[in-house]
Design a protein around this nucleic acid. Sequence first.
DNA 1: CGACCTGGTGTTATCGCTAACATCACCGGC
DNA 2: GCCGGTGATGTTAGCGATAACACCAGGTCG
Lengths: 336, 336
Amino acid sequence: MEKTSRDPAMTDVARLAGVSHQTVSRVLNNHPNVREQTRLRVKAAIKELDYRPNRAARALVTGKTQLIGVVAQNSTLYGPASLLSAFEEAAGEAGFAVSVGRVKVLDRDSIAAAVERHRDQRVAGIVVIAPNSSAADALADVPAGVPLVTVDGDPDRSTPLVTVDQAKGAFDATKHLIDAGHETVWHVSGPADWFDAAGRVQGWRAALDATSAEVPPVVAADWSAASGYRAGQMLARMPEVTAVFCSNDHLALGVLRAMSERGRNVPHDVSVVGFDDVPEAAYFIPPLTTVRPDFAAVAHETLGLLLEQISDGETTRPRRTVAPTLVKRNSVAPPR
Amino acid sequence: MEKTSRDPAMTDVARLAGVSHQTVSRVLNNHPNVREQTRLRVKAAIKELDYRPNRAARALVTGKTQLIGVVAQNSTLYGPASLLSAFEEAAGEAGFAVSVGRVKVLDRDSIAAAVERHRDQRVAGIVVIAPNSSAADALADVPAGVPLVTVDGDPDRSTPLVTVDQAKGAFDATKHLIDAGHETVWHVSGPADWFDAAGRVQGWRAALDATSAEVPPVVAADWSAASGYRAGQMLARMPEVTAVFCSNDHLALGVLRAMSERGRNVPHDVSVVGFDDVPEAAYFIPPLTTVRPDFAAVAHETLGLLLEQISDGETTRPRRTVAPTLVKRNSVAPPR
DNA sequence: CGACCTGGTGTTATCGCTAACATCACCGGC
DNA sequence: GCCGGTGATGTTAGCGATAACACCAGGTCG
């Protein structure tokens, strides 16, 4: 077995190539003033030694890391999980490593602690997936000077923000139900302190207002299928309910089950629309019409906004929304 | 607006506390030979300046980072996503940052590239969530000397491995169906090259063998509800099928829909069991009996194994499995 | 033809920390 | 009462990169 000697450093490459370490550094950073021949010699030496630059040393001298910190809730909710995954991929492609700080609950202290951990790491920027108001509040504590982008955060706050256009998605969904002939549309909403949920309520109401339809009371739930089921049990008993827009697909699943148990056929007795387009939505009974957010686009906008801040210190257009699309399946029909 | 001066460094703390920077370092690293009074003075100075050690500088001199790299597929499959989330939380609690390298497909090249990126970062250790054989193959390329733990990987390979006891979960599920009175149990399996799927097939077969039940052919699918639906359409036409064990909950969802369309009642005509216990499983129609893996336990075992390697260079017990539990709901009944 | 630029390269200082050694006061033991 | 040990602290030397400047050859220009 060979003795583990230390990893090759820049000076080792320099020695092998017969140049100074500074020239190696120039090659690595694509400085213009290096002769082509020298450049090739250095590159050959790098390859031969399997040299890889020490990021710690570079970070020490430049004062910058190639790390982005993300604060996200420790949940497996489809939306946040998809978003995170998409962001990690986008950042990776841009040459940034992503360090994820999971938080059990989205309260002020937990988020502050996660942000602190990231600052300890001296991340180049921080992304906070802050879908509810307690999370948004915590951002007030984040010192200025740290590039920061919020995703799904508070639209009324001034920090750079990227978000799915919840209102538009909800509007389209509701409009689709009205266009099918329903007099009005009921709404099972997510938790009131979530901005996503609030935006969807808003879009739903706007669609009803636009057609002068009566606005029934919001049925409040959390995001779970369980709460959707409970809401559904109530709605199933009300014969005047013929169309329900649910704030996410799992709520819709719960509603579907409640309707099925009460013998109300979906879509012929009651039409249902969800939000998120989870992969299995097409296999609900019946296949669910829903709204699909473009998480990859959100991730790219977020990264763009963050990189802008990192390089310029400022952002030109600190607010971006991404429009979702309506996916039509078989859970909507005209009322009979 | 204040001019942004550089972050405080150890020497700043030292000056304020009236000691040398080395003493500050000793306080930070809990060295024994520091007078209590000095220690307090230094701590006060740290607090006053909001000093935070520069990890890059520390990493540079010690040659070690507090970073763990994870390689995971860019998917929102419930199992892997839960596992990742749990691991990030566990690592965070242990004071490690987690850098996630997402990979679009689990092939050899992608994984090798992700591992390289992590080595560039000089991570202290790497976790690879390698649920299928192409991923496992890629690990052969990882040079020795990098602490590495595989999750859901190849049981036949010699790298340290943590995994859910798939066979036991499948055995229990199958046994449960047989105990309910079914003559045999059909199986809709996940992709053949996934170890999880293979383990579940094995457990299912073992349970049938143990009771001398006939072993029907495996119905191959991928993990999606779509493929479960197709499998279900076939099974629904076969009157002799009274019990189906599905390799995950989404497959089960597809099967449920196919049964429902064919007018076969679950559980009275056909019993169905899934695997994973996704949060909405209790709200399928009917509520799904399934097997729940303990992802938090897997995460902790993984972290433990990795930290052992990081500190000792070796591992005593490089293979750990975590037993899942059967969750009984309403999708199982005696045959009629 | 000497002053001056400029492209290619090397030399030196520096980032903020830890390791190793140096220093010094104080202690007990022979 | 001198000597070696020990606890508390300071001093110095790196870790491996980049930045800033120095240097030198060769070409341009007045």
